[in-house]
Design a protein around this nucleic acid. Sequence first.
DNA 1: AATTTAACTGAACATTCGTTCAAATCAAAG
DNA 2: CTTTGATTTGAACGAATGTTCAGTTAAATT
Lengths: 195, 195
Amino acid sequence: MARTAGSHSDITGPRVLDAALRLFARHGYAAVSMRQIAKEVGVQAGALYNYTPDKQSLLFDLMRRHMDDLLASRAKRRRTGSALEKLEDFTRFHIRYHLDRSDEVFIAYMELRNLTPENFAEIEALRREYENELEAILRQGEEEGVFAPADTRIETMAVIAMLTGVTTWYRVEGRLSADEVERIYWDMVRKAVSV
Amino acid sequence: MARTAGSHSDITGPRVLDAALRLFARHGYAAVSMRQIAKEVGVQAGALYNYTPDKQSLLFDLMRRHMDDLLASRAKRRRTGSALEKLEDFTRFHIRYHLDRSDEVFIAYMELRNLTPENFAEIEALRREYENELEAILRQGEEEGVFAPADTRIETMAVIAMLTGVTTWYRVEGRLSADEVERIYWDMVRKAVSV
DNA sequence: AATTTAACTGAACATTCGTTCAAATCAAAG
DNA sequence: CTTTGATTTGAACGAATGTTCAGTTAAATT
C-alpha cells in the first residue's frame, strides 16, 4: 500500500476531537453542528466522518477519554497512609485536575443526558468508580475515629459537588493561584468531615 | 368584545411553560423542539406563539420566574439573629427549596449558556444577588468570631455548590427524607466554615 | 515517472428546525 | 340565534440538521 497510515489523518484526527471538545464545552452538544466543528478544523463536514462514525461517538469518545484519564491519573497517586493524608491527597488532586481540564470536566457533567442509554451506563459506571475512591477514604476515616460518623455516601456526593464547583468560577487570570485554591478547599473539606 | 380575556388561554398558557420546563430539564433547551412542547400541551406548534414570542423567551421566562421566586421566598425568611442561626436557616432553606423545584434549579444551572447575552446578564445579576445573601452571613460570622477567617467569596461558592449538588442524587422515593438531608448538609456546612 | 490510495471536497439526501399566517373553529356576548 | 373575536389548525417558508458518496486531489511507494 502507498502512503503509510495517516499523512494528514494524524493531524486532522486529534484536531476534530479538540474542536468538538471546545465547541461542546462552550455551546453544548445539541447546539453544535458537524459543520461548525468542520469549520473549526478547516475542513468540510463530510471529512469528519473519516474520524468518527457519527456525532454521538464524538461526545462519547470525549467523555470516555476523560473518565479513563481521570481514573488513570488518580491511580498514579499514593494509596497508603492515614485517612486524613489520603483525603488531602484526593482533594488536592481533584481540584488541580479539574482546574487543568475545565472543558472536559464541564462536558462530563453537563452532557450526560445527551448520551445514548448504553453510552450513559458506561460513563456512569466510571464516575461511580471514581466516587467510590473518595467514599472508601471517608469510611477509613470513620473507622480511625478522625472523621465524624456520618452517611458516607452523601458526604461523598457533597464533597465532590463542592470541589467540582471550582470550575464554575475559577479563572487562571484571576485573583488566586491554583495552590491557594487547593489550600482553601482542603481547609473546608477537612473541617466538614472531621469530628 | 365577545369572549372575556382567555377562555382557553388561561389554561393553555401555563401548560406551555409547564411542558417547556419539564422537557428542557429532561433533554436540554437545544435538544427540545417547539413541536415537542406543542405535542406535550396537546396543541399544534403554531399555537405556542400566542403565549411566547419565541423559543428563547420560553427559556428566559422560566429562569426569570425561578430566580424571582427564589429571591422572594428567601426574603420571607428570618433576617435577624446570630450568624450561626442565619447560616442554618439559609442552608435548610436552600436544600428544601432546591429539592422542591428540581426541574427549575436544573435549568437555571444548565441552560445559562443558551441565553442571549442580555438575558444572561439579567439572570446572572439575580443569581449574584442570592449568593451575596450567603456571603453577608459568612462575613458576619467572621466578625462574630464564630466562623474561621477565610476567603468568604470562595466559601460562598463552595457552600452553594455543595448544597445545590443535592439535586443530582436526591430522589423522593429514596432512602432519606428531606428533613434528614437538611440535617446532614447543615452538619457539614457548619463544620466547614466554623473555626 | 507512474501508480496507488488515503484524505478531502462538494453536492445531494431526507428530516427537522423555528416561525408565519390565512383560514377554520368555537365559546361567550348581544 | 347571530355576531364577534379569541384561539387554534394546518400548511407552508427558508434555513439548517446529520449523514452519504461519487469524484477530485495529492502524498508516498514502486
